[in-house]
Structure formats: C-alpha cells, structure tokens
Amino acid sequence: MERQSVLATEDEVVNWIEDGMTIAIGEPAPMAMVRHIIRNRISGLTIIGSGIALDYLIAGGCVSKVISYYAGGGFGVAVAPSFRHAAQTGELEVWECDEGVLTSGLEATAKGLPFLPWRGGVGTSLPEVNKDLRVMEDPINGEILLAVPAIHIDVALLHASKADVYGNVQHQGGPGWIDLFLRRAANRVAVQVEKIIPNEEVRSDAWATTISNADAVIRAPYGAHPFYSRGHYVQDKKHLKLYVDAATLAVTGEQTYIEEYFRRHVYQTTSHIMYLEVIGITRLLSLHEY
C-alpha cells in the first residue's frame, strides 16, 4: 500500500460539481477552475464569492443565487456589471450578508451547529432582506443578536501558492481572505496552486501549512490570472478592463464583445495551459509583484 496522491486535473474536479450545488470561490480567485465551470456549462449554482470572479460565473450563465458580502467592480465600475444587472432584473437571488455574518454561518457548519449568534448587523436591514437571518434574544443576558444559520458548501475552490501531492497547502503571504472559513465549512475542497512542492519541503516548515487534507490539488501556474496571487504576480489590469468593458456592454444589450471574450478565453481553450497560451508569456511575465 502506498500513500495516495490527491493531485488532480481540472476535469476530475469539475466532475464533482453538479447543477444546483453550492460552490465557494476563494480569494485569490481560483480562475482556472472558474473558467472550467463556465466551459462545462454548469448551471443553477449557488456561489459564495465576491467581486469580478463572481461576475464571470454570472456572465457565464452558471449562477442562480449568490451568497456575497461584496460585488464591487473596480476600474471605475462601482458594482460588478453582470451581478448588478442580474440582481436588478430579479434573475439572481442575493443572500444579503456582510463578512462577519457570512463567516458566522460558515463557522456554524464547521462546528456542527444549526446557527451561531452574531452582533454585526443588529439594527440594520440585513434580517429584513434576508429572512434566513433571525433576530434573537440571547438566553444568557437577554441581548439582541442575529442568529446566522449554518451555511453548507458542497465544494470549495481555492487558489494558493504551493502544495505537496498529499494535499498539504502552504500560502505565501498569508492565506486568502476568508479561505480558511470556506475550507472548514466545505464537504470537499480543491486547491489550485502555483507550484507542486516535495513533501520534504512541507515538513521542513509544517507551521506554514495553512490547509491540510485538501481533497484535490491542481497544478495551475498563473491560475488566478487575471487576478493576483500573493508572492507571485499582481492583477492584470488591462485584461480585467477588457472583461469589465465587455460585461458592461453585454448588460446594455450588446452581446458581441462578451461572447467574443468567452469564446477566445474559455470555449476555444480546453484547459488552463491552453488559456495561458492565449494570454501569452510576455503579458504573464509582466505581472511580477515588485
């Protein structure tokens, strides 16, 4: 018997995902897998995610509900265009929350509890526009709190710096935004990494391991492109603008540019490596951190 490797392909991981599942998208964004979900035309997903990565999946037709604390656009666009349009027309259900509320729901799942109490959001409209949040009286001191129900995740998709083939993940420059909450609440977690490292390297600094027992590790250099990956590259502003402009036009009825964007970067490529060839090595190498 040998210890089993969890090294996986994009195809193997996308096969875990069925229409209608709840999928969490980490930050830095696991864009290789985001593109692969769109490429495989999976639909009806509930996405826990934020920003433009979330917007990609909405524009790609994969999403019916979002659990999101922030869908900002950047680049002169205050709100991500596809998110804004789909939410305004009622095509998209928005589970309204803030980061504190969301992480409470994720921790409830991780701890096997039906809910956790949280104070942030008391006095706000959150429990009015999100009926899953209940205003409760705490049984100890009678304080007013929100009860945040457990938020379950079928698959969490994350991006990190490096991992060994046994699912020991080490982030450079700290783990992503709420990625460890997503990991703890998820039934399965797949982590894309810039680099696969030997198990000896993991053991030389075990304290640096941020996630252990990942269910899959996907080798995806530049896998967060066009977003940043701490310690490796910054976001590709030019490329993001290309997307944001195309998505902004699409919601005004001009579909040509977003269709061309997805055709060139998603549908005409079959894998992450093919995508990188489309972007080109000159552009990729220009995104160094410092």
Partner: peptide, 29 residues
C-alpha cells in the same frame, strides 16, 4: 449608511449596490 442598493423591492432594486463588505460588523464594534 446603505451599500445594499436603492429601491423599494430588494429583489428588483433600481440600483444594486456592491454589498455590505464587512461594514455591518465593523461599525458595530
């Protein structure tokens, strides 16, 4: 303050805002 959006019906806002980020929790504490 409001980062959720402008309108009467939360399901069909006239202007959908970016969302609360961490502000509900931060401003409470």
């Amino acid at each position: 303050t409001n980062l959720i959006g402008i309108g009467n019906d939360h399901q069909r806002l006239d202007f959908r805002g970016p969302g609360s980020v961490g502000t509900a929790t931060l401003t409470a504490h």
